[in-house]
Amino acid sequence: MVSQVILVMAEYSVEDSPLWFRLSNDKIGLADAGELGLSAGLRRDLEVWNDVFDAIAGSGFHFSSPEIHDHHRAEAFDLAARVQDELGDETHVWCGAGEGVDLFPNLSDSLVVAADSRGTSVEQYTGGRARSITTASAGGRERTARAIIRWRALTERAGSPFGNAQTRSDGLRAAGALQRDIGALSQVIFFGGAGSPSDYLHHFGLE
């Protein structure tokens, strides 16, 4: 059973806690990294990552180069995987490349990496409309496609679509690999293995 859902999302002036509770009526808003019990090393790395976002506040939150933006997006998944590793099975960590996901599915262009999709497929959302495309069609490399296939197989053994903390961590890293491959083409999103927040709510009977 899930006790908390946490989204990794950069925000101005949150220091080592770019972490946000989701899908809860009693845990709302900022999730304090210290209160969660995250290690000092991970808290430091979360703060360094969020400092990059803080530093562009004066520019209207425009990154100085596409390369820096791409790296920041991909690194969000690495950090999210580490948060998942440290918080364990009862915590589900989401990541949308370090950006918000509240407007999903009405984001400009996004790719959802879900456990129940077949083969190397990912769900592409454009203007609220979805279609399944292969990882290669999305711009992903062969090794990324293999990582997604491996993650789905492990998740199925552990209990799809959410698996356990280890499989969700693997899924976050696979999603991060896809984000690295495609750069600014799309925002990759990982909802703990689900296809959408509504699927998540339906699975746990929280609707």
Rank of each mutant, 00 (worst) to 15 (best):
V112A: 11
R150C: 03
R143E: 10
A130W: 02
G176F: 03
A130T: 07
L23N: 14
S17W: 00
Y200Q: 04
A81N: 13
I189Q: 15
T120A: 12
T135N: 09
E123W: 07
D70Y: 05
P197E: 09
A31H: 09
R157T: 06
S137F: 04
D89N: 05
D26L: 09
S110R: 03
A80D: 14
L19E: 03
R131W: 05
H203R: 01
R141K: 09
H202L: 14
L36C: 11
S110G: 08
E75L: 11
A10S: 08
I28G: 11
E142Y: 00
I182L: 14
S186N: 15
I149Q: 13
S110C: 08
T135Y: 02
E67Q: 14
V52A: 15
L107H: 09
R129P: 02
V113M: 05
D70C: 10
L42C: 11
D45C: 13
D109W: 10
T135W: 00
T167W: 06
F104R: 13
E99I: 04
S24M: 05
V2E: 01
G159K: 14
A145D: 07
I28H: 08
A165K: 06
A80W: 10
D85S: 12
G88Y: 00
D109P: 07
T134L: 00
L79R: 14
A115W: 01
T91C: 02
T135F: 04
L185I: 04
L30Y: 03
E90K: 07
E99V: 03
D85H: 01
I68W: 03
D78P: 05
